[in-house]
Structure formats: structure tokens, C-alpha cells
């Protein structure tokens, strides 16, 4: 039995196969509409999320399976003080696979240890969010064709932004990927991540001004400054609108650059950018569902 806790739980070959399968599903969804008949996914969301939870549920429903779960900690036994270990032991009796989001870092590791069914980490605090990474990787491969030699700008909250950490780890396994890390000092990438970039011999640069990076980027990955990661409201208010991608900044970028965002977007991408053909963040959501369909099949040992 396998789990997906971090993007590195999949080898490069497995990731490529997964993306191939997602492409197959995307090309002919009807063919795969019943491969999960009789299977149940439990979506255990201790933290509010619309996109990720619905994406998992849509993925399972489109494969012919069913869904169950909870959408906030208040509606689960966690409100009564039940541990993650006990919750997953119980869920293992009901479902065939589980996707879990929890505000505490490392919670998915704990769940996997006690689970009898595959566990997918759907976000554990500011730590990891591997299926967002699979979504990002699939979007990049579909739109740019490859990863090698890409220059990717990661902008916004690089400190608590789990999607950023996971994406960097996944991209480090490809050749000559360059990272431009764009953030205010307070939200810089943690040292364990910059250490990892260094250890892998990849190039990176830390800057604070988005405009300086724009002309060099193949991919711009915008992130939201997340209120729920701050203990201090004052810091959040000061940093939340630090970066706003608008059309004057887009004009500095290459014609084939793509803009991605894990969503939800607040103010960091001006609505005017949505009309620009380089804005790909809504397409990204669609890819997310297909890659989750492929992942569910892989973890349930269903060959496509």
C-alpha cells in the first residue's frame, strides 16, 4: 500500500506515467468513467478548502466512485479531541482511500502511519501540498512541453507557502531549472529549502522586486499571503498586498511566459490579467482534477 505525503514519494518515472495517464483521461473521460465503481474516497478536511476538496470529490465521482467526509474540523470528532491517529483508524474501516487536509505540519505522516488505506496529503499546514504540485507539474508540462532549463519565478509568501516548497522539490529533479524567489524579507523561503536547492546544484536568486524578474521568466508562480498562517494580524495586513501582478508588469514579460497560481486569488493578480492569454491559472484547476483522477487510480492499483 502506498501513500502520497510529499511530491518526492513519486519517482520521476512514476510522475511522468501519472501525467501520461492524466492526459489519457483528459482526452477520453468516458473511457474511465467506471474504473472506480464501488470505491469510496474519504475527504478529511480539518481546514476549509473549496478547490482541493471538490477537486478530489469530482475526480472520484468522474471515475465512478463515491465520496464521504467532512469539510471543517468542527464537523469532525477532532472537535471532541480525537487524535489524527484514531480518526484515520476509523476511516480505514469505511473508505478505500483518504485525502486529508490538516492545519498542523506533519499530520499526514501521522495519518499514514496508522492507516490501512492509502492516504493522500491534501495539505498539512504550511508544510507540503503534493497534489497541488502534481497539478502544477502537469500544467507546466502540458503548456510548456518540458521542465528542463526553465526559469521559474516564485512570488509572494515563500515562507508559509506550502505549494511553493513542494513545487521546488519536484522541479529540482529536472535539469537546469532556475529559481527566482521573489518575496518580502519577512516571507523569504526557509533555509531548509534554500539548502535543498543548493544541495541539488540548482541556480537561485532572491529578490524583492517583481518587475526585475519579469523579463527573464518562463513561468511566474504567484501565491497568496495567507491570513491563517499569521499569528499577528498587523503583519498580515502589512504584507498582504505586497505584490500585485497587473498589466504594466505583464508587459515586461516574454510572450510565451505563463502565469500560474494555486488559487484562491485575492488581490495579488489584478482581474485585468485574467484576459491575457498567458494567464493559465483557471486551466490549471482543470488539470488538477485529471491528475487527481490518475493518482486515485494509481494508489488503488487500478491500471489505466
Amino acid at each position: 500500500m502506498r501513500h502520497l505525503l510529499t511530491p518526492l514519494d513519486l519517482s520521476v518515472e512514476e510522475l511522468e506515467t501519472l501525467m501520461d495517464n492524466a492526459e489519457k483521461i483528459k482526452a477520453d473521460p468516458e473511457k474511465y468513467a467506471h474504473v472506480c465503481d464501488g470505491k469510496i474516497i474519504a475527504t478529511l478536511f480539518y481546514e476549509p478548502s473549496t478547490r482541493t476538496r471538490l477537486s478530489f470529490e469530482a475526480a472520484m465521482l468522474r471515475l465512478g466512485g463515491k465520496t464521504m467526509g467532512f469539510a471543517t474540523a468542527d464537523s469532525s470528532s477532532a472537535a471532541k479531541g480525537e487524535s489524527v491517529a484514531d480518526t484515520i483508524r476509523i476511516i480505514s474501516c469505511f473508505a478505500d482511500i483518504a485525502a486529508m487536509r490538516h492545519p498542523k505540519e506533519g499530520s499526514a505522516t501521522v495519518a499514514a502511519k496508522h492507516s490501512r488505506i492509502p492516504v493522500i496529503n491534501a495539505g498539512d499546514g504550511g508544510h507540503q501540498h503534493p497534489t497541488q504540485t502534481l497539478t502544477d507539474m502537469m500544467t507546466i508540462r502540458a503548456l510548456k512541453g518540458h521542465f528542463d532549463g526553465m526559469t521559474i519565478g516564485l512570488c509572494g509568501d515563500l515562507k508559509f507557502g506550502r505549494t511553493v516548497h513542494s513545487l521546488i522539490r519536484a522541479l529540482l529533479r529536472y535539469k537546469d531549472v532556475r529559481f527566482i524567489l521573489i518575496s518580502p524579507d519577512e516571507l523569504k523561503l526557509p533555509d531548509y529549502m534554500t539548502d535543498e536547492i543548493k544541495r541539488n546544484g540548482a541556480e537561485y536568486e532572491e529578490i524583492t522586486k517583481l518587475e526585475d524578474a519579469m523579463p527573464r521568466l518562463d513561468i511566474l508562480y504567484m501565491t497568496r499571503v495567507q491570513r491563517e498562517r499569521f499569528f499577528n494580524e498587523e503583519d498580515y495586513v502589512r504584507l498582504k498586498d505586497y505584490y500585485i501582478l497587473d498589466m504594466p508588469k505583464m508587459e515586461l514579460a516574454k510572450e510565451d511566459m505563463i502565469v500560474l497560481h494555486p488559487l484562491p486569488r485575492v488581490n495579488e493578480i489584478a482581474v485585468e490579467v485574467d484576459e491575457d492569454p498567458r494567464a493559465k491559472y483557471f486551466e490549471q484547476v482543470q488539470y488538477g482534477m485529471y491528475i487527481r483522477m490518475a493518482l486515485i487510480c494509481m494508489l488503488l492499483d487500478i491500471s489505466l
Binding site: 487524535s83 498542523k104 505540519e105 506533519g106 499546514g125 531548509y192 539548502d195
Partner: peptide, 27 residues
Amino acid sequence: ITSIEQGLDHIFVLTDPEKEVYRCKYC
């Protein structure tokens, strides 16, 4: 997660022997 989960061992892993860096297995 170690801050709230009952009965969970606190495990640290040596991630950089040269700099003697230990990191929490969970976070």
C-alpha cells in the same frame, strides 16, 4: 502535529551530519 497529537513520539532526523543539523520528522 506533535504540539497536539496525543502519544506521538518526538522524532528528530539528522539531515546534515556536517553541520550537525537535526530536523523534526513531521514538520
